[in-house]
Protein backbone atom coordinates (compact mmCIF):
# COMPACT_ATOMS: atom_id res chain seq x y z
CA UNK A 1 0.00 0.00 0.00
CA UNK A 2 1.44 3.39 -0.97
CA UNK A 3 1.90 5.66 2.01
CA UNK A 4 0.93 9.26 1.38
CA UNK A 5 1.60 12.55 3.15
CA UNK A 6 -0.98 15.21 2.31
CA UNK A 7 0.16 18.84 2.43
CA UNK A 8 -2.40 21.63 2.11
CA UNK A 9 -3.32 24.62 4.22
CA UNK A 10 -7.02 24.04 3.58
CA UNK A 11 -8.48 21.44 5.90
CA UNK A 12 -11.18 20.87 3.36
CA UNK A 13 -8.77 19.88 0.62
CA UNK A 14 -6.85 17.63 3.00
CA UNK A 15 -10.05 15.85 3.96
CA UNK A 16 -11.21 15.53 0.36
CA UNK A 17 -7.91 14.05 -0.76
CA UNK A 18 -7.77 11.76 2.25
CA UNK A 19 -11.21 10.33 1.53
CA UNK A 20 -10.46 9.89 -2.16
CA UNK A 21 -7.10 8.23 -1.61
CA UNK A 22 -8.21 5.95 1.17
CA UNK A 23 -11.05 4.73 -0.97
CA UNK A 24 -8.53 3.77 -3.61
CA UNK A 25 -6.15 1.81 -1.44
CA UNK A 26 -3.66 4.47 -0.41
CA UNK A 27 -2.63 4.83 3.18
CA UNK A 28 -2.61 8.38 4.53
CA UNK A 29 0.20 8.46 7.04
CA UNK A 30 0.18 12.15 7.75
CA UNK A 31 -1.07 15.63 6.97
CA UNK A 32 0.68 18.98 7.04
CA UNK A 33 -0.79 22.46 6.87
CA UNK A 34 2.25 24.29 5.56
CA UNK A 35 5.62 23.69 3.97
CA UNK A 36 7.60 23.77 7.21
CA UNK A 37 5.48 21.09 8.80
CA UNK A 38 5.62 19.13 5.56
CA UNK A 39 9.43 19.04 5.59
CA UNK A 40 9.48 17.93 9.23
CA UNK A 41 6.86 15.27 8.67
CA UNK A 42 8.60 14.05 5.57
CA UNK A 43 11.68 13.30 7.62
CA UNK A 44 9.68 11.59 10.34
CA UNK A 45 7.32 9.57 8.19
CA UNK A 46 9.28 8.92 5.00
CA UNK A 47 6.12 8.72 2.87
CA UNK A 48 6.12 7.11 -0.55
CA UNK A 49 4.24 10.03 -2.06
CA UNK A 50 3.64 13.63 -1.00
CA UNK A 51 0.76 15.69 -2.37
CA UNK A 52 1.82 19.32 -2.14
CA UNK A 53 -0.28 22.46 -2.29
CA UNK A 54 1.46 25.56 -3.64
CA UNK A 55 -0.09 28.54 -1.90
CA UNK A 56 0.50 28.03 1.81
CA UNK A 57 1.55 30.16 4.76
CA UNK A 58 4.96 29.84 6.46
CA UNK A 59 6.64 27.99 3.64
CA UNK A 60 5.12 27.64 0.19
CA UNK A 61 4.89 24.37 -1.69
CA UNK A 62 7.71 25.05 -4.15
CA UNK A 63 10.18 25.88 -1.40
CA UNK A 64 9.01 22.79 0.45
CA UNK A 65 9.68 20.66 -2.63
CA UNK A 66 13.20 22.07 -2.80
CA UNK A 67 13.84 21.34 0.85
CA UNK A 68 12.43 17.84 0.70
CA UNK A 69 14.37 17.08 -2.45
CA UNK A 70 17.53 18.27 -0.74
CA UNK A 71 16.86 15.80 2.05
CA UNK A 72 15.85 12.95 -0.19
CA UNK A 73 16.54 13.05 -3.88
CA UNK A 74 14.14 10.17 -4.44
CA UNK A 75 11.12 11.89 -2.91
CA UNK A 76 7.96 11.54 -4.97
CA UNK A 77 6.04 14.79 -4.84
CA UNK A 78 2.85 15.59 -6.71
CA UNK A 79 1.78 19.21 -6.80
CA UNK A 80 -1.81 20.24 -6.18
CA UNK A 81 -2.43 23.44 -8.06
CA UNK A 82 -5.16 25.70 -9.32
CA UNK A 83 -5.75 26.64 -12.91
CA UNK A 84 -3.69 29.55 -14.10
CA UNK A 85 -0.63 28.78 -12.03
CA UNK A 86 1.38 27.25 -14.87
CA UNK A 87 4.56 29.08 -13.98
CA UNK A 88 4.49 27.84 -10.46
CA UNK A 89 3.83 24.28 -11.49
CA UNK A 90 6.75 24.53 -13.86
CA UNK A 91 8.95 25.80 -11.06
CA UNK A 92 7.81 22.94 -8.88
CA UNK A 93 8.65 20.42 -11.57
CA UNK A 94 12.02 22.05 -12.05
CA UNK A 95 12.52 21.73 -8.33
CA UNK A 96 11.83 18.03 -8.61
CA UNK A 97 8.09 17.48 -8.35
CA UNK A 98 7.01 14.43 -10.31
CA UNK A 99 3.58 15.47 -11.47
CA UNK A 100 0.65 17.69 -10.66
CA UNK A 101 -3.07 17.62 -9.99
CA UNK A 102 -5.37 20.48 -10.85
CA UNK A 103 -8.03 21.81 -8.51
CA UNK A 104 -10.94 21.22 -8.69
CA UNK A 105 -9.82 17.64 -9.12
CA UNK A 106 -11.76 14.52 -9.91
CA UNK A 107 -11.09 11.32 -8.12
CA UNK A 108 -10.31 9.46 -11.32
CA UNK A 109 -7.61 11.91 -12.36
CA UNK A 110 -6.02 12.06 -8.92
CA UNK A 111 -5.72 8.30 -8.83
CA UNK A 112 -4.37 8.19 -12.37
CA UNK A 113 -1.57 10.57 -11.47
CA UNK A 114 -0.71 8.87 -8.20
CA UNK A 115 -0.72 5.42 -9.77
CA UNK A 116 1.86 6.62 -12.29
CA UNK A 117 4.29 7.27 -9.48
CA UNK A 118 6.65 4.37 -9.15
CA UNK A 119 7.60 3.77 -5.57
Amino acid sequence: MKRVLIVDDAMFIRLTLKLMLEKNGFEIIGEAENGTVAVTKYQQLKPDIVTMDITMPELDGISAVKQIKALDDKANIVMVSSMGMELMVRDAILAGAKDFILKPFQEENVIKVLNKIKV
Binding site: I54, P57, E58, D60, G61, L87, M88, D91, L94
Partner: peptide
Protein backbone atom coordinates in the same frame (compact mmCIF):
# COMPACT_ATOMS: atom_id res chain seq x y z
CA UNK B 1 17.33 28.48 -20.55
CA UNK B 2 14.22 29.43 -18.75
CA UNK B 3 13.27 32.82 -19.67
CA UNK B 4 12.24 35.06 -17.00
CA UNK B 5 14.33 35.85 -14.00
CA UNK B 6 11.95 38.63 -13.26
CA UNK B 7 8.77 36.68 -13.49
CA UNK B 8 10.33 34.04 -11.40
CA UNK B 9 11.11 36.30 -8.47
CA UNK B 10 7.63 37.66 -8.55
CA UNK B 11 6.07 34.28 -8.66
CA UNK B 12 8.21 32.94 -5.89
CA UNK B 13 7.32 35.90 -3.82
CA UNK B 14 3.71 35.34 -4.64
CA UNK B 15 3.99 31.96 -3.03
CA UNK B 16 6.69 32.58 -0.53
CA UNK B 17 5.26 35.39 1.55
CA UNK B 18 4.06 34.17 4.84
CA UNK B 19 1.86 35.61 7.46
CA UNK B 20 1.82 35.60 11.16
CA UNK B 21 -1.80 34.96 11.88
CA UNK B 22 -1.63 31.29 11.14
CA UNK B 23 1.38 30.57 13.30
CA UNK B 24 -0.58 29.97 16.39
CA UNK B 25 -2.78 27.36 14.78
CA UNK B 26 -0.01 24.86 14.49
Amino acid sequence: VYCPPRTETVETEREGETTTTTNRQQ
